[in-house]
Nucleic acid binder design. Structure first.
Length: 831
DNA sequence: TCTACTATATTTTTT
DNA sequence: ATATAGTAGA
């Protein structure tokens, strides 16, 4: 990821003095498009062409999966620039991930045949950080503010809840975090919320207090959480219209991708940015040296920026974090006169895959009917497989990947998706055993490891001395004999004297602590001060506003690691895991070196920002020859030659937790839809009949969504409807209508016409069916019995544990060794 | 103040 | 099953 430098910084015109250096751009006008300008629409279908060429205040592109929306967006941007309708610096494009942003920039520049500096192509969060760092002063923030991730937020909330004894009222850090996040996404700040709160409800009073304290602590630490990044930018624009006007003037074309997943705060931000600027303020701006030439309309004001949004409500999968599907559904009402373009032709998948996707998503009511189609032909059937256990399922995936690979498909063209991160375990175990090159995208991230967080906390403490959370984290890491008692003493000393925690550390000798502890605190304070000194630019750098003369991030990190003793503590530790931790820290150093090399002149704060805002999908390295493992959420926007959708079971997809949420099952179905539509040529659907959860094995039932795929599209290698308890290889179609068979005889086509009839029985139907699948039923085993297993051969039961459906036989097989088997569904027979 | 043991929750998805 | 957090003892 590269930092984007900005040659058209709208600096200079804030609240007071006139600009020292007027911005340099004005919209070019009256220039003819260069010859060959229509090259940009070559090879586009009529709808895509219209989406590229339409000019107007608002454009909604309803883009089905794989309909070439990225192509349309890049061509649209390139066309605006090439026709001289806009300078690159007048374009703001919002993407879902940093990786998508980098790709879009590359593709636009490839189309133009030249670098297009000054374009803002980034995520909502990155763009907001950029604006906030620049305007921090207006909000009373330090421009080096820290960005708190979810773990940081939870730590702060945990302390607050403990201090307030709020846990006795049922508050947990997670619940408070979720509620605060939800409020911030709705742009409700503490005081607004407090005013409308019911003061008779002790629960609510307590929550207000938690929220208040949380807000105060973040402010004192000069820190913002993820949700603040968006919300504070909106507040900034609303409280300082003049600041807002600078950005409104600058961005003439705003494009937002994945619009169906924007939340209210993001929507409000877009609204602010697309406001027009009244004539009197334009005059005022002009008086301060802001170039407004060629931007004004007949009234003397500057019209609002043109807005293009791209989205697909069928792919909305982030309602849980506040995404509001209404943003896209009601776009035409919000932006009167908006043009709508529909892209339905799919250029990614085979017709079989699309038919499955269409069939599944058509079960969501309350949606505009939309059917993806392709001209490439049916392609191969979807492959289905039902394993006995998650490991069995994983083995199937591994085997199929190997056979794809032998057939010439590169590993990097293959992906495995799942609903929850916990599902990676079985997959990884089998992949390692099969020596398959793979990479887990997202999940427990590198930057979430404790040792990396420690090292990062050192950097954060240097960049933002007010950040108490980071300071407290490193206070006794590595161990230097500073315990909770000392920490409290320092904190109260700071509070009594009205100084920061960091300042209190510098004055530790005034606390009357033991000489050893005092020495340790002073030494740490000195190390941090020295590191801070390394970051000060030379006087020339200061004068020019550059970072010239400051030491690179990697140097500062190495200095901190060595002089704090952190790296030595890890290297000299007796704990064997610390060796790996030391290597991880080395890896972090290597990453800072890369950062320094790729971003000359960038600051420590730039590095910290970049680290805070990496998305899971940003980690995917296209050049690496590995299979990618990721959650269905991470998979959004990606495509692969072959896709494996695993764990298609009730309770997992749809997830248990979604049942209680309104719209949950529909959102889970969209998630399934997103997964299906990632596949270009091959799609594999798999599930397990039993799955370990919380260390306990439980019987799993096929996902209700599997039945929504028309029969004939799936070739079941081993189907859930397979009733034989041995043999195990006889495939039988999942949806085959057999009188009295496992899947029932109900006519689903008829059901569609009756909402009342279909809703409840449908869920039941799936369950009834799966309850009878591969049921050994009344098979009773006890120690000493001999059994035969399909794969493991004969063996002797040594022990039986568990109750009901969870009864487990411990079996010593004659050749395969010790195994634990779920009696109900294991492919075994009693001898 | 540090280490070792025990109890407990953890598994929804993410910037 | 496993990771973390809290408690008790050195």
């Amino acid at each position: 990821m590269t930092l984007i430098l900005d040659p058209d910084d709208p600096a200079g015109w804030r609240e007071a003095p006139p600009a020292s250096a007027p911005p340099s751009t004005a919209a070019p006008s009256g220039t003819m498009p260069p010859a060959g300008g229509d090259r940009l629409t070559d090879g586009l279908n009529p709808e895509q062409r219209e989406a590229v060429e339409y000019r107007g205040p608002a454009l909604l592109i309803v883009a089905g999966a794989g309909s070439g929306k990225t192509r349309v967006l890049t061509h649209r941007i390139a066309s605006l620039i090439q026709s001289r309708e806009a300078w690159p610096s007048q374009i703001l494009a919002i993407t879902f991930t940093n990786k998508a942003a980098a790709e879009m920039r590359e593709r636009v520049e490839a189309l133009l045949g030249e670098a297009a500096g000054g374009m803002w192509i980034s995520t909502f969060h990155s763009a907001c950080v950029r604006i906030l760092r620049r305007e921090a002063e207006s909000l009373g923030l330090s421009s080096t503010f820290t960005i708190y991730d979810s773990a940081d937020t939870r730590t702060v909330l945990k302390r607050i809840i403990k201090e307030l004894d709020a846990d006795t009222m049922g508050f947990t850090p997670a619940s408070a975090q979720a509620k605060i996040s939800r409020l911030k996404n709705e742009l409700a700040d503490v005081e607004t919320y407090a005013r409308n709160a019911n003061t008779n409800d002790p629960n609510e009073v307590m929550f207000v207090e938690i929220f208040r304290q949380y807000t105060r602590r973040l402010r004192e630490a000069s820190a913002l959480d993820f949700d603040d990044l968006i919300a504070e930018t909106v507040y900034l624009f609303r409280a300082f219209p003049k600041v807002a006007s600078l950005y409104q003037r600058r961005f003439r074309h705003i494009l937002v991708d994945e619009y169906q997943d924007t939340n209210h705060a993001q929507y409000a931000l877009i609204r602010e940015l697309t406001q027009s600027i009244p004539a009197d303020r334009v005059h005022e701006m002009e008086g301060h040296g802001v170039n407004v030439a060629a931007l004004t309309d007949a009234s003397g004001g500057i019209p609002g920026a043109s807005l293009t949004v791209v989205g697909d409500s069928d792919q909305s999968i982030y309602a849980f974090r506040g995404a509001d599907i209404r943003n896209i559904v009601e776009f035409e009402r919000d932006f009167p006169g908006a043009k709508v373009v529909l892209l339905e032709q799919n250029y990614r998948s085979t017709q079989n895959i699309l038919s499955a996707a269409n069939a599944v998503i058509s079960n969501n009511f309350d949606r505009k009917d939309k059917k993806l189609w392709t001209a490439v032909g049916d392609g191969e059937l979807i492959t289905g497989y039902t394993g006995y256990t998650a490991h069995d399922e994983a083995q199937f995936v591994a085997d199929e990947i190997e056979s794809l690979h032998r057939a010439g498909i590169a590993y990097r063209d293959i992906a495995v998706f799942y609903r929850t991160n916990a599902q990676t375990r079985a997959l990884e175990e089998i992949f390692v055993r099969s020596a398959l090159p793979y990479r887990v995208v997202g999940g427990t991230k590198f930057y979430e490891r404790a040792e990396i967080k420690d090292a990062m906390a050192y950097l954060i403490s240097v960049a933002n001395p007010l950040d108490e959370l980071a300071l407290r984290r490193i206070l006794n890491t590595p161990k230097r004999g500073i315990g909770p008692a000392t920490e409290t003493a320092l904190a109260s000393f700071a509070e009594q004297n009205g100084i920061s925690f960091r300042e209190a550390m510098r004055n530790a000798d005034a606390l009357g602590l033991g000489p050893k502890v005092t020495g340790a605190i002073l030494a740490l304070a000195r190390v941090l001060d020295e590191a801070a000194a390394m970051l000060v630019p030379s006087s020339r750098g200061v004068a020019e506003g550059t970072n010239e003369g400051a030491k690179p991030v990697s140097d500062v990190l190495v200095f901190l690691l060595e002089s704090s003793g952190l790296i030595d503590a890890l290297r000299n530790s007796r704990d064997p895991q610390d060796e790996t931790r030391a290597e991880n820290v080395e890896e972090l150093v290597a990453q800072t070196r890369d950062f320094d090399r790729e971003n000359p002149g960038a600051t420590l704060v730039d590095f910290l920002t970049q680290v805070s805002l990496v998305a899971a999908a940003d980690e995917i390295d296209d050049a690496s020859g590995t299979v990618s493992l990721m959650t269905l959420h991470t998979a959004k926007g990606l495509e692969y030659h072959a896709v494996f959708l695993t764990g298609l079971e009730e309770g997992l997809l749809p997830h248990q937790m979604s049942a209680s949420e309104p719209g949950g099952p529909a959102e889970e179905r969209r998630l399934f839809y997103v997964g299906i539509t990632r596949a270009r040529k091959r799609l594999f659907l798999s599930l397990a009949m039993s799955r370990a959860q919380f260390g306990e094995v439980a019987v799993a039932m096929p996902s209700r969504y599997l039945q929504e795929i028309p029969e004939g599209l799936i070739d079941w290698r081993q189907s859930p409807g397979m009733a034989t308890s041995r043999g195990g290889t006889q495939p039988r179609a999942l949806n085959a209508r057999r009188p009295g068979g496992a899947w029932g005889t109900r006519d689903r086509d008829l059901e569609k016409f009756s909402v009342l009839k279909s809703a409840a029985p449908k869920a039941e139907w799936a369950n009834r069916v799966t309850g009878t699948v591969r049921d050994n039923g009344d098979l009773t085993l006890e120690a000493g019995d001999r059994i035969r297993h399909v794969d493991f051969g004969e063996g002797r039961v040594t022990q039986v544990t568990g109750e009901g459906t969870k009864r487990i036989a411990h079996v010593a097989f004659d050749t395969a060794g010790q195994k634990k088997l779920l009696i109900k569904i294991a492919p075994i027979e009693k001898l």
